[in-house]
């Protein structure tokens, strides 16, 4: 098992390598000259030359890549073109809101989706099942910003229950934190709920059709016990897998949600950086997001070895 874990960890290296090459090439595939963009509105030709030299844009590509990678290993992601601050600092500043929103979203999504999925599987073929599945397809189909604006309109403007925008750190109190985070998290969680509910329903249904469950039901074991002890436990692996795969969706959704709700997290930073072509930030963010994705999926793969002893590698 440990050999597997080590192999699994080593396997992330080529993945991150591919990401790094892509991220590096980003700046060099641009149609415009990066130095001209960086120099700004009123730059003179000599400024552009100077900036090009400062950034080492005159070196051959492989030397630039080597230097860039070397600095990366030292934790230096470069300096933001627009704000002149280190990219690592900018990303650190924005980490908390995004992490908290992602965690809240996952918690809410699991709390809603797993019971829904189990219920649908239990009531297979009835209107309850259909309603849950219709809801799940809707979750995939309605764009996140439409949901977000509808919620702002309803809960903030008409009912005046929740703030329209912004973020309060959890350090300033749980209630203010929740008041700000609840709408973005629910909007963001829609797709996630749909995804998890479907997979839960399918997995639980599969388990419910296994012989031993039928036996257990026939023996008259309490339904909830069957559901929790047998069905849900065996459905855990696919559910955990989908949470890992869903991380990519979540990261994408963060970009939209943070723009709508004006949350100063990594998603807003991404949009701002892309609209301004602040390449060092874009590069840093893609690295960070991809790193998170790879890490989460690594942890999930490793967790299988504990979750389901039947899986052997």
């Amino acid at each position: 098992m440990y050999a597997y874990i080590v192999r699994r960890i080593l396997a992330t290296i080529p993945v991150m390598g591919v990401v790094a090459v892509f991220v590096f090439l980003l700046l060099h595939l641009t149609p415009g000259d990066p130095a001209t963009v960086i120099a700004g509105d009123y730059a003179r030709p000599e400024d552009i030359v100077r900036i090009r030299e400062q950034l080492g844009l005159n070196d051959p590509l492989y030397i630039q890549f080597g230097n860039w990678l070397w600095r990366l290993f030292q934790g230096d992601m470069g300096i933001s073109i627009f704000s002149n601050l280190p990219v690592t600092h900018l990303i650190q500043q924005r980490l908390e809101p995004t992490i908290m929103m992602a965690l809240t979203t996952i918690i809410i999504a699991i709390a809603i989706a797993v019971p829904l999925g189990v219920l649908a599987a239990w009531k297979q073929g009835t209107w309850v099942d259909r309603a849950v599945m219709v809801f799940a397809v809707l979750g995939f189909s309605v764009p996140i910003f439409v949901v977000a604006y509808a919620m702002i309109w309803g809960f903030s403007i008409k009912l005046k229950w929740l703030p329209v925008q912004g973020y309060t750190p959890i350090g300033e109190g749980l209630i203010p934190f929740l008041r700000n985070i609840i709408m973005p998290a629910v909007a963001l969680g829609m797709v996630y709920v749909a995804l998890i509910a479907r997979i839960t329903r399918a997995s639980v249904m599969e388990v419910l059709n296994e012989d031993y469950i039928r036996t257990a039901r026939a023996k008259g074991l309490a339904s909830t016990t069957i559901l929790i002890r047998h069905a849900l436990k065996n459905a855990a692996v696919p559910i955990v897998t989908i949470i890992g795969i869903g991380i990519a969706l979540l990261i994408g959704g963060v970009v939209v949600t943070e723009s709508v709700f004006n949350i100063p997290g990594l998603g807003r930073l991404t949009v701002d950086a892309i609209l301004r072509r602040d390449y060092p930030i874009i590069q840093g963010l893609i690295l960070v997001f991809s790193g998170v994705y790879v890490l989460v999926n690594l942890l999930i793969d490793i967790s299988y070895t504990f979750l389901d002893p039947r899986i052997r590698y």
Binding site: Q165, G166, N262, R268
Partner: peptide
């Protein structure tokens, strides 16, 4: 200075006293 890129969000923040 609280920069809010979306005008509709800014307006609602003003109306809500944020």
């Amino acid at each position: 200075w609280l920069y809010i890129p979306d005008p509709a969000t800014t307006m609602n923040a003003l109306i809500a006293g944020e």
